[in-house]
Design a protein around this nucleic acid. Structure first.
Lengths: 109, 109
DNA sequence: TGCTTATATTCGTTGATAGTTGAATATCAA
DNA sequence: TTGATATTCAACTATCAACGAATATAAGCA
Protein backbone atom coordinates (compact mmCIF):
# COMPACT_ATOMS: atom_id res chain seq x y z
CA UNK A 1 0.00 0.00 0.00
CA UNK A 2 3.10 2.22 0.02
CA UNK A 3 2.38 4.04 3.29
CA UNK A 4 -1.09 5.38 2.67
CA UNK A 5 -1.17 9.03 3.66
CA UNK A 6 -4.34 10.61 4.90
CA UNK A 7 -4.76 12.84 1.91
CA UNK A 8 -4.09 10.17 -0.68
CA UNK A 9 -6.84 7.88 0.55
CA UNK A 10 -9.38 9.92 -1.39
CA UNK A 11 -7.38 9.81 -4.60
CA UNK A 12 -6.91 6.08 -4.36
CA UNK A 13 -10.57 5.59 -3.55
CA UNK A 14 -11.51 7.57 -6.66
CA UNK A 15 -9.50 5.20 -8.78
CA UNK A 16 -11.09 2.15 -7.22
CA UNK A 17 -14.50 3.72 -7.64
CA UNK A 18 -13.92 4.05 -11.37
CA UNK A 19 -13.61 0.25 -11.47
CA UNK A 20 -16.53 -0.33 -9.15
CA UNK A 21 -19.19 -0.39 -11.87
CA UNK A 22 -20.05 -3.53 -13.87
CA UNK A 23 -20.63 -1.51 -17.03
CA UNK A 24 -17.20 0.07 -16.86
CA UNK A 25 -15.60 -3.32 -16.31
CA UNK A 26 -17.43 -4.63 -19.35
CA UNK A 27 -16.20 -1.68 -21.38
CA UNK A 28 -12.61 -2.35 -20.32
CA UNK A 29 -13.05 -6.01 -21.10
CA UNK A 30 -14.24 -5.22 -24.61
CA UNK A 31 -11.22 -2.97 -25.08
CA UNK A 32 -8.91 -5.92 -24.49
CA UNK A 33 -9.42 -6.81 -28.15
CA UNK A 34 -8.04 -3.44 -29.18
CA UNK A 35 -9.16 0.02 -30.07
CA UNK A 36 -12.91 0.50 -30.46
CA UNK A 37 -15.36 3.30 -31.16
CA UNK A 38 -17.98 4.48 -28.70
CA UNK A 39 -20.72 3.06 -30.90
CA UNK A 40 -19.10 -0.37 -31.07
CA UNK A 41 -18.54 -0.37 -27.33
CA UNK A 42 -22.11 0.67 -26.66
CA UNK A 43 -23.34 -2.18 -28.83
CA UNK A 44 -21.05 -4.83 -27.35
CA UNK A 45 -21.78 -3.92 -23.76
CA UNK A 46 -25.48 -3.20 -24.14
CA UNK A 47 -25.05 0.28 -22.74
CA UNK A 48 -26.86 3.12 -24.42
CA UNK A 49 -24.65 5.45 -26.41
CA UNK A 50 -24.91 8.28 -23.92
CA UNK A 51 -24.20 5.90 -21.10
CA UNK A 52 -21.19 4.38 -22.75
CA UNK A 53 -19.82 7.82 -23.45
CA UNK A 54 -20.25 8.90 -19.85
CA UNK A 55 -18.63 5.77 -18.43
CA UNK A 56 -15.74 6.06 -20.87
CA UNK A 57 -15.12 9.57 -19.65
CA UNK A 58 -14.86 8.34 -16.10
CA UNK A 59 -12.26 5.79 -17.21
CA UNK A 60 -10.51 8.47 -19.25
CA UNK A 61 -10.34 10.83 -16.32
CA UNK A 62 -8.77 8.13 -14.17
CA UNK A 63 -6.26 7.32 -16.88
CA UNK A 64 -7.40 3.76 -17.52
CA UNK A 65 -8.17 4.49 -21.18
CA UNK A 66 -6.96 6.87 -23.88
CA UNK A 67 -8.77 8.16 -26.96
CA UNK A 68 -8.23 9.73 -30.35
CA UNK A 69 -10.74 11.37 -32.65
CA UNK A 70 -11.04 10.56 -36.31
CA UNK A 71 -13.77 12.41 -38.13
CA UNK A 72 -16.98 11.88 -36.20
CA UNK A 73 -15.66 8.78 -34.53
CA UNK A 74 -13.89 8.60 -31.19
CA UNK A 75 -11.62 5.61 -30.70
CA UNK A 76 -10.88 4.36 -27.21
CA UNK A 77 -8.08 2.04 -26.13
CA UNK A 78 -6.67 0.77 -22.85
CA UNK A 79 -4.01 3.14 -21.58
CA UNK A 80 -2.91 1.45 -18.39
CA UNK A 81 -2.38 -2.32 -18.60
CA UNK A 82 -2.21 -2.35 -14.82
CA UNK A 83 -5.98 -2.39 -14.86
CA UNK A 84 -5.90 -6.01 -15.97
CA UNK A 85 -3.54 -6.91 -13.16
CA UNK A 86 -5.95 -5.23 -10.78
CA UNK A 87 -8.82 -7.32 -12.07
CA UNK A 88 -6.76 -10.49 -11.87
CA UNK A 89 -5.92 -9.83 -8.25
CA UNK A 90 -9.54 -9.15 -7.46
CA UNK A 91 -10.64 -12.27 -9.30
CA UNK A 92 -8.15 -14.31 -7.30
CA UNK A 93 -9.70 -13.12 -4.08
CA UNK A 94 -13.24 -13.91 -5.06
CA UNK A 95 -13.12 -17.64 -4.37
CA UNK A 96 -11.57 -17.02 -0.99
CA UNK A 97 -14.22 -14.46 -0.27
CA UNK A 98 -16.99 -16.87 -1.13
CA UNK A 99 -15.49 -19.55 1.09
CA UNK A 100 -15.21 -17.05 3.90
CA UNK A 101 -18.83 -16.06 3.54
CA UNK A 102 -19.90 -19.71 3.57
CA UNK A 103 -18.05 -20.17 6.84
CA UNK A 104 -19.81 -17.19 8.37
CA UNK A 105 -23.19 -18.48 7.30
CA UNK A 106 -22.41 -21.87 8.77
CA UNK A 107 -21.36 -20.31 12.05
CA UNK A 108 -24.52 -18.28 12.31
CA UNK A 109 -26.96 -20.83 10.95
CA UNK B 1 -8.62 -9.90 -16.33
CA UNK B 2 -9.11 -13.63 -16.82
CA UNK B 3 -11.93 -13.49 -19.41
CA UNK B 4 -14.51 -11.39 -17.66
CA UNK B 5 -17.88 -13.06 -17.97
CA UNK B 6 -21.03 -11.02 -17.99
CA UNK B 7 -22.23 -12.32 -14.66
CA UNK B 8 -18.92 -11.88 -12.88
CA UNK B 9 -18.64 -8.19 -13.66
CA UNK B 10 -20.98 -7.43 -10.80
CA UNK B 11 -19.06 -9.56 -8.34
CA UNK B 12 -15.78 -7.93 -9.31
CA UNK B 13 -17.34 -4.48 -9.13
CA UNK B 14 -18.55 -5.24 -5.61
CA UNK B 15 -15.00 -5.99 -4.56
CA UNK B 16 -13.67 -2.82 -6.08
CA UNK B 17 -16.46 -0.86 -4.45
CA UNK B 18 -15.41 -2.13 -1.04
CA UNK B 19 -12.07 -0.41 -1.63
CA UNK B 20 -13.62 2.72 -3.11
CA UNK B 21 -14.06 4.52 0.20
CA UNK B 22 -11.33 6.59 1.86
CA UNK B 23 -12.39 5.50 5.32
CA UNK B 24 -12.13 1.82 4.46
CA UNK B 25 -8.69 2.37 2.98
CA UNK B 26 -7.65 4.11 6.18
CA UNK B 27 -8.97 1.19 8.22
CA UNK B 28 -6.99 -1.27 6.12
CA UNK B 29 -3.93 0.91 6.43
CA UNK B 30 -4.22 0.92 10.21
CA UNK B 31 -4.53 -2.86 10.16
CA UNK B 32 -1.12 -3.15 8.53
CA UNK B 33 0.35 -2.84 12.03
CA UNK B 34 -1.52 -5.92 13.11
CA UNK B 35 -4.71 -6.99 14.79
CA UNK B 36 -6.80 -4.18 16.25
CA UNK B 37 -10.15 -3.76 18.00
CA UNK B 38 -13.04 -1.79 16.58
CA UNK B 39 -12.58 0.91 19.17
CA UNK B 40 -8.90 1.32 18.43
CA UNK B 41 -9.59 1.49 14.72
CA UNK B 42 -12.34 4.05 15.21
CA UNK B 43 -9.97 6.20 17.21
CA UNK B 44 -7.06 5.92 14.80
CA UNK B 45 -9.08 6.65 11.70
CA UNK B 46 -11.37 9.28 13.17
CA UNK B 47 -14.43 7.29 12.24
CA UNK B 48 -17.27 7.14 14.70
CA UNK B 49 -17.77 3.80 16.40
CA UNK B 50 -20.85 2.95 14.37
CA UNK B 51 -19.15 3.94 11.16
CA UNK B 52 -16.05 1.91 11.84
CA UNK B 53 -18.13 -1.13 12.66
CA UNK B 54 -20.14 -0.80 9.48
CA UNK B 55 -17.14 -0.28 7.23
CA UNK B 56 -15.34 -3.22 8.78
CA UNK B 57 -18.28 -5.43 7.97
CA UNK B 58 -18.11 -4.41 4.34
CA UNK B 59 -14.44 -5.38 4.30
CA UNK B 60 -15.30 -8.59 6.14
CA UNK B 61 -17.98 -9.52 3.66
CA UNK B 62 -15.57 -9.04 0.78
CA UNK B 63 -12.96 -11.13 2.52
CA UNK B 64 -10.37 -8.40 2.92
CA UNK B 65 -10.35 -8.74 6.71
CA UNK B 66 -11.02 -11.46 9.28
CA UNK B 67 -12.13 -11.16 12.88
CA UNK B 68 -12.27 -12.99 16.16
CA UNK B 69 -14.25 -12.17 19.29
CA UNK B 70 -12.77 -12.09 22.74
CA UNK B 71 -15.25 -11.16 25.43
CA UNK B 72 -16.86 -7.91 24.42
CA UNK B 73 -14.02 -7.05 22.10
CA UNK B 74 -13.86 -7.87 18.40
CA UNK B 75 -10.39 -8.05 16.87
CA UNK B 76 -9.93 -7.43 13.18
CA UNK B 77 -6.94 -8.30 11.01
CA UNK B 78 -6.07 -8.28 7.33
CA UNK B 79 -7.10 -11.54 5.72
CA UNK B 80 -6.06 -11.04 2.13
CA UNK B 81 -2.61 -9.49 1.60
CA UNK B 82 -3.55 -9.03 -2.05
CA UNK B 83 -5.31 -5.87 -0.96
CA UNK B 84 -1.94 -4.19 -0.50
CA UNK B 85 -0.85 -5.22 -3.97
CA UNK B 86 -4.06 -3.73 -5.30
CA UNK B 87 -3.35 -0.45 -3.60
CA UNK B 88 0.22 -0.44 -4.87
CA UNK B 89 -0.94 -0.93 -8.43
CA UNK B 90 -3.45 1.84 -8.05
CA UNK B 91 -0.86 4.14 -6.50
CA UNK B 92 1.48 3.45 -9.40
CA UNK B 93 -1.15 4.56 -11.86
CA UNK B 94 -1.94 7.77 -10.08
CA UNK B 95 1.01 9.78 -11.36
CA UNK B 96 0.32 8.64 -14.90
CA UNK B 97 -3.30 9.59 -14.46
CA UNK B 98 -2.39 13.06 -13.27
CA UNK B 99 -0.03 13.56 -16.20
CA UNK B 100 -2.72 12.42 -18.58
CA UNK B 101 -5.20 14.87 -17.11
CA UNK B 102 -2.71 17.69 -17.41
CA UNK B 103 -2.29 16.86 -21.08
CA UNK B 104 -6.03 16.99 -21.63
CA UNK B 105 -6.33 20.32 -19.90
CA UNK B 106 -3.48 21.71 -22.01
CA UNK B 107 -5.15 20.48 -25.19
CA UNK B 108 -8.45 22.05 -24.31
CA UNK B 109 -7.17 25.21 -22.67
C1' DT C 1 -29.93 -8.41 39.42
C1' DG C 2 -28.25 -4.19 37.80
C1' DC C 3 -24.25 -1.51 35.80
C1' DT C 4 -20.46 -0.73 32.55
C1' DT C 5 -18.04 -1.53 28.37
C1' DA C 6 -17.65 -2.97 23.46
C1' DT C 7 -19.82 -3.90 19.36
C1' DA C 8 -23.73 -4.21 16.20
C1' DT C 9 -27.93 -2.46 14.22
C1' DT C 10 -31.64 0.73 12.94
C1' DC C 11 -33.35 5.11 11.37
C1' DG C 12 -33.39 9.53 9.03
C1' DT C 13 -30.88 12.86 6.39
C1' DT C 14 -27.82 14.05 2.89
C1' DG C 15 -24.88 13.78 -1.15
C1' DA C 16 -23.27 11.23 -5.13
C1' DT C 17 -24.07 8.60 -9.19
C1' DA C 18 -26.45 5.48 -12.79
C1' DG C 19 -29.46 5.53 -16.46
C1' DT C 20 -32.79 7.82 -19.65
C1' DT C 21 -34.30 11.30 -22.75
C1' DG C 22 -33.87 15.02 -25.83
C1' DA C 23 -31.20 18.84 -27.58
C1' DA C 24 -26.81 20.45 -29.35
C1' DT C 25 -22.55 19.80 -31.90
C1' DA C 26 -19.34 18.05 -35.41
C1' DT C 27 -18.15 15.51 -39.59
C1' DC C 28 -18.83 13.65 -44.06
C1' DA C 29 -21.17 13.00 -48.58
C1' DA C 30 -24.12 14.54 -52.20
C1' DT D 1 -26.64 23.89 -48.13
C1' DT D 2 -29.07 19.69 -46.86
C1' DG D 3 -29.29 15.25 -44.86
C1' DA D 4 -27.35 11.37 -42.36
C1' DT D 5 -24.40 9.73 -38.83
C1' DA D 6 -21.68 9.91 -34.47
C1' DT D 7 -20.83 11.93 -30.21
C1' DT D 8 -21.46 14.90 -26.32
C1' DC D 9 -24.10 17.76 -23.12
C1' DA D 10 -27.95 19.01 -19.95
C1' DA D 11 -31.67 17.89 -17.10
C1' DC D 12 -34.39 14.67 -14.70
C1' DT D 13 -35.61 10.66 -11.68
C1' DA D 14 -34.42 6.92 -8.87
C1' DT D 15 -31.32 4.46 -6.23
C1' DC D 16 -27.55 3.76 -3.07
C1' DA D 17 -24.15 4.61 0.43
C1' DA D 18 -22.13 7.53 4.20
C1' DC D 19 -22.64 9.47 8.42
C1' DG D 20 -24.52 10.61 13.11
C1' DA D 21 -27.74 9.68 16.83
C1' DA D 22 -30.08 6.57 19.27
C1' DT D 23 -31.01 1.96 20.54
C1' DA D 24 -30.10 -3.05 20.92
C1' DT D 25 -27.22 -6.99 22.09
C1' DA D 26 -23.89 -9.30 24.73
C1' DA D 27 -20.12 -10.06 27.93
C1' DG D 28 -17.95 -9.10 32.32
C1' DC D 29 -18.28 -7.55 37.01
C1' DA D 30 -20.16 -5.82 41.61
Amino acid sequence: MIELSESSAGVIADRFRALAEPMRLRLLNSLRRGEMSVGELAEQTGAGQANASKHLQVLLQQGFVERRKEGTTTWYRVADPAVFELCSLVCGGIEEGLERRRKLLRRRG
